[in-house]
């Protein structure tokens, strides 16, 4: 073949600054969530005279924030198109080990708390390693098995006993205030900031999104998919242990059957927050708002003493509402 003409390149420049679009900005999913939150607060205020005051709003957070810590790593996991249904069992196992370490082995409480965190992280690590080593099995299968296993171990350790009588200061986690702000709220905000930065401002977070959209392409692009997954699952275990500490502190004791079905609540909150289980989508701020929506809704309806079966229906309907609204094309909310 005889070379004839070489097509000259058409020189072009590309935009590198994203133009600010008010329309796009205000059509974000998180705004809708924020409106729902305002709606929930307004509804609660109109229903109960006890709802809208600082101490009520403040103390409510102590009620619902314990499991919210797991929502963050769960969001990361769901963005990676995985799921972890063993977190509830991890909460139980890590708290049981902590209590046994303190009560039966004579470990000082401070060290027992550290042990709790380590056990949680180890549970998560094991999930992560199994998922990475056995890629042909999905995370659902593996965490379903470890869910039964972890709780089983908790039962073996503590049998039918409750273990408690923690030192006085341990109660501070679940019940304490710092300058009038619940300690749990402070830690929650801190965790939200940390996870928000991790997800949105670091290379690690960018990798998580990349894996969620296309794990093969991520691997070919030099993203260490396995390591990222293991770390995120370990984080989930670690945060489950944090929840375990708060829960044990609030109850002053622990038992193998605590935190039953927490995983479903956590997944529901993450989904409401705009994290799609189809992977790659969602922002952390959405999950934070979702935590408060669900929490305040339950708390507020509790203040007018709605039966818990009604609450079940309300939460289920809210979850459906949240996933159906974006499918309506009329206001195009970007999830």
């Amino acid at each position: 073949m005889e070379p004839k003409t070489i097509q000259p390149y058409t020189q072009r420049t590309l935009e590198a600054d994203r133009p600010f679009s008010a329309k796009q900005f205000f059509l974000q999913w998180e705004w809708l969530l924020a409106f729902i939150l305002i709606g929930v607060i307004a509804l609660n205020t109109s229903l109960s005279p006890y709802f809208l005051n600082i101490s009520s709003l403040r103390d409510a957070t102590m009620v619902f924030l314990d499991k919210a810590f797991i929502v963050f790593p769960m969001a990361l996991i769901m963005i990676m198109r995985d799921i972890d249904i063993s977190v509830g069992s991890t909460v139980a196992l890590s708290s049981v080990v902590m209590a046994v370490a303190y009560n039966s082995l004579g470990v000082p409480m401070g060290a027992a708390v550290v042990i709790c965190l380590i056990v949680g992280a180890l549970c998560g690590l094991m999930n992560g390693l199994l998922i990475v080593k056995f890629k042909e099995l999905s995370a659902v299968i593996i965490t379903l098995a470890t869910m039964i296993l972890y709780r089983g171990i908790a039962y073996i350790i503590l049998e039918d006993q409750a273990s408690g009588s923690f030192p006085e200061w341990f109660g501070f986690f679940g019940w304490g205030y710092v300058y009038g702000i619940p300690f749990i709220l402070i830690l929650f905000i801190l965790a939200a900031l940390l996870f928000g930065l991790l997800l949105h401002k670091t290379t690690f977070g960018r990798h998580i999104y990349a894996i969620g959209h296309n794990d093969v392409a991520s691997r070919f692009s030099g993203v260490n998919v396995d390591r990222t997954k293991v770390i995120v699952f370990t984080l989930a275990g670690l945060m489950a242990a944090v929840t375990a500490i708060f829960l044990a502190s609030r109850m002053g004791s622990t038992r193998p059957n605590i935190a039953n079905m927490y995983e479903l609540d956590v997944i529901a909150m993450a989904a409401l927050g705009g994290i799609s289980t189809a992977g790659g989508k969602g922002r952390l701020i959405g999950t934070v708002i979702a935590v408060f929506i669900v929490g305040y809704l339950q708390y507020g309806l509790g203040l007018i003493n709605i039966p818990s079966q009604t609450l079940l229906i309300v939460v289920g309907a809210l979850l459906l509402f949240a996933v159906i609204v974006p499918k309506l094309n009329i206001p195009r909310f970007k999830k």
Binding site: L14, A16, K201, T202, T203, F204, R206, H207, A210, H213, N214, V216, A217, S218, F220, S221, G222, V223, G280
Partner: peptide, 29 residues
């Protein structure tokens, strides 16, 4: 489509994915 690019992402993010560390400061983008 399957191995090379993340189709749901913009051009820029795709290009920088392999070497994010290069223009991040200790992991911060």
């Amino acid at each position: 489509q399957k191995q090379g690019l993340i189709l749901q992402w913009g051009i820029g993010r795709n290009i920088t994915l392999p070497a994010l560390e290069r223009f991040s400061n200790k992991g911060w983008l």
